[in-house]
Design a protein around this nucleic acid. Structure first.
Lengths: 220, 220
DNA sequence: GCAAAAATAGGACGATCATCAAGATTTGGT
DNA sequence: ACCAAATCTTGATGATCGTCCTATTTTTGC
């Protein structure tokens, strides 16, 4: 198991308890997205789900526990959603990569993702637990993208596949603060999505083994 | 003047006062970057610059004033740095665009920028003043990029130039949470920078008028 | 049904927050 | 040198934070 360091376990033994824990987690999730990390207090969360402060403190004796359980919940949710949406049959590898790109950019436009990930990126600066979970999530995203990159262009080395996946993923995530939910250039997201789907696939197809190393060497 | 809404003025009349205000702003800047928005308290800032809480409160009666003056300071600083670095003589438009890309990605790797902008993106979710200043800053970045895009490919319409600039800028900013200062894939920044400089310029040169509209129409 | 365990209510704790008020000190113009 | 204004110290304000403690109520195992 290797749970030596981090093993936030979900409290709640009786059914009433687990229901309450669910309510607390949902409330915490909503407060974080609707009002931001600043408003993310035990009291605000308790109010949000109609509980008393002491009761929330009973289920999560330390606030950090709540943060960790919540984050695990959220990340697991994103991972399964990604899996479910991508594993469509009857699609070519190219169509699958296009689908991943469209799904990611579409998701970025949701209020949930726009707010959540900007908060997480900031929190990750000074919270190792959050940093590690965010890293793990994106590692999985890169793997999913990399799987199709490799199939579309089998000549590429694993390292080249990873670099390309990283580049595509970072480029997409970068739209969050500009073209995300209610962001200044949100109206341009359709065009950016179309460009991304088309150009990233072109990039994957046209990159030849050694290209990245050549470019890196030349520009250093 | 139309200063009805936002006109944060820098306090401090006597030279001693201005020095103190400078010290407060520097301390506030450092606290935000080194310890994040969570630690951004008047008390912490006062300690950082060896002042008493009441004195900081004297110069900035409301914390929001401090935030606004600080942010204006920071954004002005970034804008002038961008101008100074880009306005190099004896360079072709293509070399200038390459320079902007390299400068931006290099800057993203600094602790200051990596931490600062992730914090600002999060704060912008629920603080209109910050959201507006961040928007204004990136609008300027897009203009700088757009100027060279237009010159490299004069056939493109202003809207196409803007979309391309937005795409390039967003792609670069997206590297912040992944390849920025002490981020998980920071060691890949050299390769990503090389890819970006080369690929974005290729895109600008190869895009034909109508291409973006065609792709957008086809994918809707 | 009954005892034990779990869940909840309600209040209190000390710590820290932004802000303020009043007095002491320093500064700049004259 | 003097005075008013600017600056700084000091202490206190009420609000809010996370956490804890003790009853009280609800649920579960038997």
């Amino acid at each position: 198991m290797a749970d030596t360091e981090l093993a936030p376990t979900r409290p709640g033994i009786y059914s009433r308890g687990t229901e309450t824990v669910d309510a607390i987690l949902k409330a915490a999730h909503d407060v974080l997205i609707e009002e931001g990390a600043e408003a993310f207090t035990v009291r605000r969360i308790a109010t949000e789900c109609g509980l008393r402060v002491g009761n929330v403190s009973y289920h999560f004796p330390k606030k950090e526990m709540l943060v960790q359980v919540l984050l695990d919940d959220i990340m697991e949710n994103y991972n399964t959603k990604l899996d479910v949406n991508v594993r469509q049959p009857d699609l070519s590898d190219e169509e699958r990569l296009r689908l991943v790109i469209v799904i990611c950019l579409d998701d970025i436009c949701s209020k949930r993702t726009t707010h959540l990930f900007t908060e997480l990126w900031a929190l990750a600066n000074h919270n190792d637990f959050i940093a590690e979970r965010v890293r793990g999530f994106y590692a999985k995203v890169h793997d999913v993208i990399g799987e199709y990159v490799q199939r579309i262009n089998p000549a590429l080395s694993p390292d080249e596949v990873h670099t390309l996946s990283l580049f595509i993923s970072a480029s997409m995530e970068g739209t969050t603060p500009f073209l995300g939910y209610k962001k200044p250039w949100n109206d341009k997201m359709a065009a950016i999505t179309a460009i991304s789907a088309s150009w990233f696939i072109d990039l994957v197809k046209s990159t030849k083994p050694g290209d990245i190393a050549d470019m890196t060497r030349r520009s250093s």
